[in-house]
Write a protein that binds this DNA or RNA. Sequence first.
DNA 1: AGAGTAAAGGTCAGTAATGGTCAAAAAGAC
DNA 2: GTCTTTTTGACCATTACTGACCTTTACTCT
Lengths: 162, 162
Amino acid sequence: MANLVELIESYLKKLLEETDEIEIQRKELANHFACVPSQINYVLQTRFSIERGYIIESRRGGGGYIRITKLHLHRPEDMSMILEQGIGEAISQDHASALVHRLVERNLITLREAKLLQKAVSQDILNACMFGETYLRASLLKALLLVIMQPSFQNDQNGKEK
Amino acid sequence: MANLVELIESYLKKLLEETDEIEIQRKELANHFACVPSQINYVLQTRFSIERGYIIESRRGGGGYIRITKLHLHRPEDMSMILEQGIGEAISQDHASALVHRLVERNLITLREAKLLQKAVSQDILNACMFGETYLRASLLKALLLVIMQPSFQNDQNGKEK
DNA sequence: AGAGTAAAGGTCAGTAATGGTCAAAAAGAC
DNA sequence: GTCTTTTTGACCATTACTGACCTTTACTCT
């Protein structure tokens, strides 16, 4: 355990035993371990990646921070299986659609969430890809908002439709 | 919450819980928080922008004031306004993000939904656009699933975090 | 009225405080 | 000795804060 990366890793994991989410300051932590700030990024990239079940968010500037969130996957095995084998690097609409459908059946996601996902991966949205990024963003945002605002969901946040 | 900007922001938002419109004096407020007056402008510009649903009016000279008015976008009929004028045919990430933020503040969507939307319109996802449609679809699906599976949402479908 | 002055608020560029990236060097593993 | 992992540092990007200088409005004095 002589490695800095492991020292910092275990330090952060200790903090994460208490709560699911911690906020640190890169400079401060680097100072604590007497290393360069970018070492912290290395730790985060190699030990707190999405594959390992963490989500990193951060903000620069005065009062900046790095937030580490621990994922509590319902069934972690399922999740990594889904992401790696079920989806992979590229996926067709049919396969994506079928996958989402299965997730609902297994109660891993709600119907409401399923509809959002279905819309996000649908042909009509992705076609906007050709017109550029901001165009795609606008299409996506509008379509997803419309799904959210569907009347049947208004008083039915969990999406258990009828 | 060490940031001045956040302190002032929450102070003003607290006042805005009561009414839709408040009037302040720049110098007085700056004095209250022991900062330079232009700091107030910074807060207004970054936290009470139009995208976030506020209108700022002011008047200089003796008896001058700054008025902050909260915009109302409750009802679904306002939704079409948001879609057409607030989004349009193309939208930047910053604007999309501010819009989503504002929808949460007005309780039009839950935090959970907001995080999904934020991820959907985020740079890292849309970059996948270049690699083709099926690639983008895979990135989108994976990222959104991870958002759904975040711990803070497990027993908190309405997303009222903290 | 008009001039002068006091009392607001506005702008903008510069500085400070963070965090991010990337490639090269150093250290370990086999 | 070669390959992988770790560590470092130079350079970049973003957000917050400050201060000097500018504009507008109200009030007062003649």
